[in-house]
Design a protein around this nucleic acid. Sequence first.
DNA 1: GTTTGTGAAGGATTTCACAGCA
DNA 2: TGCTGTGAAATCCTTCACAAAC
Lengths: 217, 217
Amino acid sequence: MASFNNNSDNSLPESAVPEVVIQRLPLYVRVLTQFSSSGEEVISSEQLGTRLQMTPAQIRKDLSYFGRFGKQGRGYNISILEGKLRTILGLDRTWNAAVVGMGRLGRAVVSYPGFAPEGFNILAAFDANEEIVGQSISGLKVESISKLTQSVKDHDIKIGIVTVPIDHAQEVIDALVEAGIRSILNYAPLSPQVPEGVTVRGIDPVLSLQSMTYYIK
Amino acid sequence: MASFNNNSDNSLPESAVPEVVIQRLPLYVRVLTQFSSSGEEVISSEQLGTRLQMTPAQIRKDLSYFGRFGKQGRGYNISILEGKLRTILGLDRTWNAAVVGMGRLGRAVVSYPGFAPEGFNILAAFDANEEIVGQSISGLKVESISKLTQSVKDHDIKIGIVTVPIDHAQEVIDALVEAGIRSILNYAPLSPQVPEGVTVRGIDPVLSLQSMTYYIK
DNA sequence: GTTTGTGAAGGATTTCACAGCA
DNA sequence: TGCTGTGAAATCCTTCACAAAC
């Protein structure tokens, strides 16, 4: 990522479907959603490819890992394909998340309006600083990190979002893993160590900038 | 990826070095910086690999595209390697950037303290809304988008950061390209169309979440 | 006529494995 | 002895090209 950049990926479960393919599916979902709201009914791999700047063959091959969703001579029904892909990705349900680290970044994350419409609900917020614990931020009561395991269980939290400073990131990630979390979105600028079966995706705009400068230098 | 996940990459300049390799170099810089501040002098590809959860062979191969930086039997001198990689990536200088879109996200970006220490200076901020234009945000006077081309020239801006809502993102990106920008960090949830020679990196935490749910579903 | 789905081919990237040097 | 640098091998991923379906 490699985006884009920037994905630490730790030995995911055995599967015939390449990891890169899985990472492209959300892209397909995104354009399909945009197309469907524009009144179109059918879309070809050619049109999808134009939108995403990739080859039609790649799109067809990616989709073929999961089934036969198109009709020869016509293309793909937009809303049906979108639905299939959402089901494949597990987006036909909602997911509960917890944010750890309620400084500047954590506050921005919990108040970001883009998660809920996509089914990602932030139900808990944690911080190590006792002055912040107890505060209410965007409707969330900040809890002590010592409550993590209990809260993960109580709220059926499946996703951890790490927004602590770098020097506490690894220990927070260890705590999340300890609490049973297997999917982590990491905003701290480090590549954390995680056991097999735990997926970490990193969000670091600086890494993205640092690889772009190579091409303009 | 990238990520990673999440990188639109449009036909970069001809080069012998694979794009994936370029995207990993900032990762190496990041760990080297962390190691060097810990007093160590030398590091082996094995140690780097452990930190980054990748194979030592891959690290050695990546580095070999650019030269011979190590010493057999010892490893790599941390600060020398860091310096070499920074030079390769163009990080031995500073880069000026402009943010377009001064809503919630744009404000978070200009006030993010992680860019400047890495040499990325945000020198201009733009918005289409006349009520925001003229305001001062984090020490930046917000300008009208009509001033884009002139401002890019005046400040020697090389990087555009897009934080406008999705329905204006493509036109803003067109305007940046028109103004001569060839590197764009895009926070809007769309894969923009850009001409050859322009690099776009997307930052979209939702895409990252959507590919992780596949593995926990 | 158009576009899918897919084996086969081609290309790219990763890993192996070891010669060579410190 | 320990670790790099690197061709060669292995693996992974993308693209081709075309039969089949509409």
